[in-house]
């Protein structure tokens, strides 16, 4: 079973949330899931775009009370 780690980047604006995800994903194991919390709407586009380039797996993006939750699975 995979671990899911929360990367709480609320209050940080682009490129902060993406940079926090990159740092967290370096420290994660293949198969781990990371959930980025961002209050910056731009993260909903920027982070999935980065995930596609790097070829990790984008498990979904949801918005709840002004916070975007972007979930990624480390694929390599």
């Amino acid at each position: 079973m995979s671990n899911r780690k929360i990367v709480d980047a609320r209050g940080s604006f682009c490129p902060g949330p993406l940079m926090e995800l990159i740092a967290a994903i370096k420290a994660a194991q293949i198969g781990d899931e990371l959930e980025v919390l961002s209050s910056d709407k731009a993260s909903a586009n920027d982070i999935p775009e980065w995930i596609r380039k790097v070829k990790h797996e984008h498990l979904g993006t949801t918005e709840e009370n002004g916070v975007w939750h972007v979930v990624v699975k480390k694929a390599k």
Binding site: C14, P15, L18, M19, A42, D46, E49, W50
Partner: peptide, 10 residues
């Protein structure tokens, strides 16, 4: 550049 465009300010 680290993000998906050439500067952080859109």
């Amino acid at each position: 550049y680290p993000i998906g465009r050439v500067h952080s300010l859109e």
